[in-house]
Design a protein around this nucleic acid. Structure first.
Lengths: 152, 152
DNA sequence: ATCCTTGCAAAGCATTTGCAGTCAC
DNA sequence: GTGACTGCAAATGCTTTGCAAGGAT
């Protein structure tokens, strides 16, 4: 996406929630919208520092949280290590490598009927959204001599 | 499940991975297998302390990690706060409340065809498992005057 | 001019680790 | 008896926060 477009999109999202457009937030969002590596806060910090060399890690954290609050990004949390952020808002799922922890996109949507059927069983629960994720081994981590040990 | 059964199950699982059966691990597993509140490590610690008043939080963490390693428990991680543990190994999904953070079980399984279709799109990725979770508001947290703000 | 945002450093919190004593095997 | 496990306390690492200076509206 063109830089002007992401900036405009950000400006609108911030305005509608009464927040201000800043270079720091723009740089963070620009990077997040341009990559599909689902970076950690620290990775965003390192990447963004080449544009804005004065930016601090704390500001990156704050900016990421702002983006999540605006609906421009999604925060992904896993057992191991730190949170990852996803700035791609088109419908897709994730596959996560159990060996290296990398997260990869899978385009597509699960049939709504599945979700509805599940929602029906969640008595009294007001469903807002759902998430689906595959776990396994990515192309570079897949064990050579066949599948490794399978943990349920 | 009867206490003798959970203990035996734990003993076998530990033995087959070359680890020892201890009162601490037994108490943690007994509690985890008996509840469906998906407790945090701290909640497990508080609950188990009534049986074994000398147990330390560090030991609870170590025991939980051991159980996960044996396949007797699953660790659930979310953006907010601390990890939760699930000791129920029958097929089910989770619904998580965006307001209070509680995690509730939903029995059932998603049609395998859905997962297979998704797996097919994850080129080169070796799928081991998957997880599906609903997010929304639980019965006690559901907003009075209709749905609250929906965040994608 | 107002008050939101930044950057810095310090604090916070969940989780992990080193180590000596203890216990399961 | 041996090696694994516990409990304690300190350490680690990610994330958040308080505050004064700076910047967007």
């Amino acid at each position: 996406m063109l830089r002007e477009n992401t900036d405009l999109q950000l400006r609108r999202a911030l305005q509608s929630s009464g927040q201000r457009f800043t270079e720091q937030r723009a740089a963070v969002y620009r990077y997040l919208a341009s990559t599909d590596i689902h970076p950690t806060a620290d990775e965003v910090f390192l990447a963004v520092r080449s544009d804005l060399d004065g930016i601090s890690l704390a500001t990156v954290y704050k900016s990421l949280e702002t983006l999540v609050g605006c609906g421009l990004a999604v925060k992904l949390s896993y057992s191991d290590s730190s949170a990852r952020y996803d700035g791609r808002m088109d419908p897709h799922y994730h596959s996560r490598c159990l060996a290296c922890g990398s997260v990869t996109d899978i385009p597509g949507e699960v049939a709504g009927s599945e979700i509805q059927s599940l929602s029906g069983k969640a008595t009294g629960f007001q469903v807002i959204g759902y998430s689906l994720e595959l776990t396994g081994y990515c192309t570079t981590c897949v064990p050579e001599g066949g599948p490794g040990p399978i943990h349920a």
